[in-house]
Design a protein around this nucleic acid. Structure first.
Lengths: 204, 204, 204, 204
DNA sequence: AATGAATGAGCTTTCATTCAT
DNA sequence: GATGAATGAAAGCTCATTCAT
């Protein structure tokens, strides 16, 4: 196993504080010097691990988003279902995510990889909501779309926190339904409690 | 200053990793042995500090909630405005909150004090939403109220995360407006973008 | 034994490079943390040791100089005999002196304690030579005294180096005689090959 | 650049302790394995470097001594002026010389190359002084010549130490004059404060 | 009860050396 | 011969904890 994966495993399993160089090299079955040879030090390895972990999250997400249809409400649904899927949201990823966030106030390099969903995801959601808001004839569609985007991402964050603190009792279905209840109220005819609603008119 | 407050100051200012016994006793101007004498060790002190910090959060919140009117939508507005107020949501509290969450996967005693808004707050929100849902004549008012509660608390979590990662650019007003956009869609006539809407009929 | 003495012993016996924290604490029979507790780190301990070693050299020298009579040529003789005595010039002191000098180019704090005989000793020698030069009626007594001082201290340095490199074959008597051969040529009637010459007139 | 020159550069510039294998190969632009391939290890390379450095010192000195005239006092003057010339005595050589001396107590192979002027130089000086002593009709010319030799080399050592510790304020002219003051006293008519005195009789 | 000097396990890092290529 | 990735012993240092006072 690589040093980065061993580092992530260790942080996920025993936490940031107990993730020592010794722990990492034991897991990676590599020699002590490798960390400094390849990364320059433990801190740099941890930062690379944060970067890699963040990239993996977006990769997983992007992989899942590919399955979305062309309708904007389908894109939104894909984002929500993907971000709350077992592949993306599980004990390991949530442990890592919060471990890095706990360090982010002290280490700006880590903060950069701990961001609340990155620009690409925000843009994807915003574009979808903008189309929906315009189609619905809502006033100020940009502002509506922006708030819907921020709100959706905030709701996803909240669900992740819930998973962190109650991994055993967390209910993915309930989390998804809660989000769609808000969306179906905001964009009636586009969403219902089960997700995206595809109208005959919209499908042509 | 007490050991607990010094511990919290240290965690908030220089982070979990650099919060050593020496750092704490320097801040508290107490002798080295006091931590073990009074708490049994550093870990126990940190747990007590998490407990105290959590209690202080709810105290601040409860203090602010007292100003709420008797209408359920006013209660909801009070919760939201309080939880995003400068008194409750600031660099210190958010640093502490995420520092403890970073540790929560490894230390269950800390997890207990890092919870996503506790039972009292959930009940308060749920009771308010239940009244609103019933008054609105919505079907399945309990489920609606539960989802609205979970969603509201999730949105607040999301806003806190946003503050953690972008303390300088965070906009309290925009955060509040975003939440009310969702609530005003879910409970039209009870909320608008500015908060609670108090109908003549409701005021009697 | 103290940490400083253990450090000096180690440097004298096994050299600068092999004088590790482990070596020092083993010799001192103290715990690992003491070096950092009392001195702040190995470097600071080494500097304090250099300072102490330097002070001890001057103390030994001053102790021996007390035996000197009141005539200036007796002062000069006392300086030379003391600086080449077994008490002052021995394997330990010469090892330390050159070990510190080897470091002095890189560490200015150590250079300060490695100086070629300090100001007090220079002044003592200069005052003695000035009196002799004036009594002898030599032209430019100040310049003569200055050169005699520099030359005497340089000769002593040279003898120390000889001792460093050939501790077994070094001959204190020959070293002293060599120096007095130069001095007796420079100040005839004041010194001969055996040291200071005390004239009837000078003795009263 | 060769490994030996890189090693000497490193010791002169950053000191013994910081001269690592990595530092040396970086300077030499050679691969890591070369040190062991060609020298068997770092220690052997350092010893070869000490040997080379010593040889270079004597080469420089010999080159400068060639300019000396045939009179013995001219030979002595050449030795002194050469050993204190910028070519021979400069920051680099003095750094190297004292770095090796600092190690000499522990590594006899290095001590051999750190000697206080070698046999050839001693013989050259001794032969010159012996001629002068005999010409002057001094009693015990051998002993006088031996002391003059030891004294001269000791004085040169002392001047080097002065340069090591005060490279900025060191005054070559003053150092030379000081030595000649001693020599002119010991061998009047052969030296004065400016160096060798060449008598009409001696020149034929 | 209260102190803080002392401990030593465990930390990150360095670096001479090895050896498969 | 020549390379440089890999090794792991040993380095300096940190720090929670202990305990004689």
């Amino acid at each position: 196993m690589t040093l980065i994966e061993s580092t992530l495993d260790s942080i996920a399993e025993i936490g940031f504080a107990r993730t020592s160089v010794s722990e990492i090299i034991d897991r990676a079955q590599l020699s002590r010097g490798m960390i400094h040879l390849h990364f320059g030090g433990k801190d740099a390895l941890v930062e690379e691990s944060a970067k890699y972990s963040s990239a993996k999250y977006y990769d997983s997400l992007n992989g899942l988003l590919k399955t979305a249809g062309s309708d904007p409400q389908e894109s939104v649904e894909a984002i929500i279902r993907s971000d709350l899927s077992e592949e993306v949201l599980n004990k390991r990823t949530v442990s890592l995510w919060y471990a890095f966030r706990g360090e982010s106030r002290e280490r700006k390099a880590i903060a950069a990889y701990s961001d609340t969903r990155d620009a690409r995801l925000r843009n994807l959601a915003f574009e979808a909501y903008l189309k929906i808001a315009r189609q619905s004839g809502l006033p100020e569609p940009e502002t509506t779309a922006k708030d819907a985007t921020n709100g959706t991402l905030a709701l996803l964050e909240g669900m992740w926190t819930d998973f962190l603190l109650h991994p055993e009792s967390f209910d993915r279905g309930a989390a998804i339904r809660t989000i769609f209840r808000f969306l179906s109220a905001l964009f009636p005819g586009y969403f219902d409690l089960d997700g995206a609603v595809l109208k005959a008119a919209a499908r042509g």
